[in-house]
Write a protein that binds this DNA or RNA. Sequence first.
DNA 1: TTGGACTTGTAGCGATTGCTACATTCAGCG
DNA 2: CGCTGAATGTAGCAATCGCTACAAGTCCAA
Lengths: 182, 182
Amino acid sequence: MAQTQLSRETLLPKLAAHVLEHGLGGASLRPLAKAAGTSDRMLIYHFGNKEGLITELLGYIAAMYSGALDAMLGDVRPASRQECLARILDAGSDPAMQAFLVLWWDIVAGAARGLPGYRTAAEAMMTKQLAWLEAQMPEGDPDPAGGARYLMTVIEGTLMLAAVGHDKTARDGLLAGGLLPS
Amino acid sequence: MAQTQLSRETLLPKLAAHVLEHGLGGASLRPLAKAAGTSDRMLIYHFGNKEGLITELLGYIAAMYSGALDAMLGDVRPASRQECLARILDAGSDPAMQAFLVLWWDIVAGAARGLPGYRTAAEAMMTKQLAWLEAQMPEGDPDPAGGARYLMTVIEGTLMLAAVGHDKTARDGLLAGGLLPS
DNA sequence: TTGGACTTGTAGCGATTGCTACATTCAGCG
DNA sequence: CGCTGAATGTAGCAATCGCTACAAGTCCAA
C-alpha cells in the first residue's frame, strides 16, 4: 500500500474545508476522514489522537485566516475611520466570510470553555486581525494603535450582534456613536 | 410508582445548572438526567426528544438571564455613559457571571449555525439586555436609545475579546474611544 | 370496583464514538 | 536478495449516543 502518501500537510486543507462546512463541535473522526479521503485509522496515525488533530487543525485555520487577511491588504487606504469600518463590515457580509464567521463562534466558545488549542488559535487570529487593522488605519490618524483597538472592539461587537439576529441594533449603535455616516 | 412527580418546571432548574457547568455542546441525555435526579427515559417523556429539551432549556435560561438583569435594576443611575460602561464591565468579571458568559458563547455559536432554539433564545436575551441598558442610561442623556445600542455593541465586543484573551486590547480600545476614563 | 390516563423502571436496540490489534504492503538500504 | 521501518487496510473493541418497547405502578372518575 503506502502509495498515496498522505501527510498532515495534505490532510489539513481538506479537514479545514470540512469543519468550515460542518462545524467543529460535532466533528468526529470518521466523517472527517471521509472528507479528507482517508480513514479514521490514518487520522489517529498522523495526529496521535483527536485532540492533537483539533489542535493542529485550529493552528492551520488560524494560518488560513492570516493568509486571507494578508491577501486583503494592499488595497487603497481608507480616508477615515468611518470608511474603514464601513468597508470591513461590508467584507463581513461576503458569503465566504460568513462560513468563516460561523466557525469563528465555535472557536470563541471553545476558547471561553478552555478547550486545548482553541484559546491559542483564537488569540493568534485576533492578534493578526489587530495588526491588519492597524495597517488599515487612515493616513494621518492621530492614534492609529488606539484607533485600531477601538474599531476592533466595535467590529467584534457588531459581528456578535449580527450572529444572533441583532444586526440592526448594532447598526443603530454605530450610527449613534458617530462611527458610521448617517 | 409515580410519587416523585417530576415535571418540566421541576426539571429545568437542575438541567440549567448542569449546562451552566458543563456546557451545551457536549450535553447528552444521561448525564443531564442524572444531574436532574431522573432518567434519560423521563427526559424524553417530558420533552418529547432532545431537540425539544434543548429548546425549552434555552428558553428557561433566557428567562433566568432576564430575571438576573431585573434583579440588578433599581440601582443608582450612573452619572455618565463612561460610568455606566465601567460598572457593567465590572459586573462581567463576577465569577457567577463568568459561568453565564461561557455558556453564552455556546449559545452564540449555536445561533450562528442556525440550530433550532438557539437563535430565538439569543435574540431574546439580547433584546432584554438592550432594554435593561436603555433603563440604565444616565439621566439627561441626549440619545438614550442610540446610546444604549452603542454601548451594547461596545460591551459585546469587549466580552468577546476578553473570552479569547484579548481583554487588554479591548480595554485599550475603550480608552482610545473615550469610553473609559484614563 | 373497575377502567383508563398519567407516570415511571428496566432493558435493550441500532448507530456512532475514539481508538487499537494485527497483518500487509511498499520504499529504501545493506 | 533480505531486512527494516513507515504507511495503510480490515476488523473490532468498549463506551456512549438518542430513543423505544413493555410492563408495572398510581391516581381519579364513573
